[in-house]
């Protein structure tokens, strides 16, 4: 029997959809029992959402005032204290999971496998390396606990309809005071979340200014899309950092990704490989983005985008 503990990600109110994708990944392990753990200040609501994910056996709540903000230095020792009962501990490959899980692994003295994209066995996994240009199959040692992050773009969300038992845990773990949360700034909008959106409109350096990015926001609003950006666009200050798509930004898997004025560098393509349909709009017919695009249109984005917006609303 394999017992997988999944670290639930949330913002205090809502369970992040990445968690249900980790459940699907864990469900690929043979003979498995899945538990989700929610750490927070008051996790009643989020734990309820986790209990409703199909395939989950139990949900653990660890409520402590120190857990108000997801600091790795605070969460990791608590997860290490829970580890004894489990063979695997999974977290999502989000900034939350990537920060936290290696700290848990090292406290336990065990290795981590990052970015699981396929489960081939209880200790056999595929993961991307070299910006997704080489996929490796990794064999971990069954005698050790396995820590992993899950590449969420590789898995569908587990369905709703579960009815897991919720249990409150009190852990007597001493927590460090050397790390303190100060504050956050998010560009939260009414638009769909980039990581879970079905449709994404994304812009590159060619947009030329933050002002011109409004062309994309306007198009996105017409079709209910999230807006992404290349690194060049973010570095130039045309778009916010949380909009970056790629090896070092977000890895996404929308039904449709519309790349506008993006050349298609490998680091960018890494982030969109799992998009169902890629549309490329670029004035250079030789741009590498056309090698991976399902539909391509050569031309000037400043003419094409307004016309596209007109025609989709018509």
């Amino acid at each position: 029997m394999h017992k997988v503990l999944i670290v639930g990600e949330h913002d205090g109110k809502t369970l992040n959809p990445a968690t249900a994708k980790c459940v699907t990944c864990a469900g690929g392990i043979p003979d498995v029992e899945i538990t989700i753990v929610i750490l927070g200040a008051d996790t009643a609501a989020v734990a309820g959402q986790a209990a409703a994910v199909a395939g989950v056996k139990s949900v653990l709540r660890v409520d402590r005032p120190e857990n108000q903000h997801p600091l790795a230095a605070i969460f990791a020792p608590q997860l290490a204290a829970l580890a004894a009962d489990y063979t695997h501990i999974f977290g999502p490959s989000t900034s939350f999971g990537k920060d936290l899980m290696p700290r848990v692994a090292a406290l336990l003295g065990v290795p981590q496998v990052s970015d699981l994209m396929a489960v081939e066995g209880a200790y056999l996994f595929k993961r991307p390396t070299y910006a997704g240009n080489a996929i490796v199959t990794v064999q971990a040692d069954p005698a050790r606990k396995l820590i992993a992050t899950v590449r969420v773009a590789s898995f569908e969300s587990a369905k709703a309809g579960g009815n897991a038992a919720v249990e409150s845990k009190s852990l007597s773990v001493a927590l460090p005071s050397h790390t303190r949360y100060v504050g956050a700034k998010s560009g939260s909008t009414d638009r769909p979340d980039l990581q879970t959106a079905k449709r994404v409109v994304s812009g590159g350096r060619a947009l030329g200014s933050a002002e011109n990015f409004k062309l994309l926001f306007s198009l996105a609003d017409k079709i209910g899309a999230a807006v992404g950006a290349s690194r060049a666009a973010v570095d130039a200050g045309y778009a916010a950092n949380e909009m970056q798509v790629g090896q070092t930004g977000k890895i996404i898997s929308p039904d449709i990704y519309i790349a506008i004025g993006i050349s298609g560098a490998i680091q960018h393509l890494t982030g969109i490989k799992d998009a169902r349909t890629i549309v490329a709009i670029n004035k250079d017919g030789e741009a590498p983005i056309f090698e991976v695009a399902d539909v391509g249109l050569v031309g000037d984005l400043f003419q094409i985008v307004p016309e596209l917006e007109r025609l989709v609303s018509g």
Binding site: G132, A134, T137, R144, K273, L297, L308
Partner: peptide
């Protein structure tokens, strides 16, 4: 601690169609 048993290229996306206008 971790053994790499195989390395393979990623699944390639097929080049799609080019359209002439919006």
């Amino acid at each position: 601690l971790l053994k790499t048993v195989k390395t393979e290229p990623p699944a390639q996306r097929q080049k799609g169609v080019m359209v002439k206008d919006v």
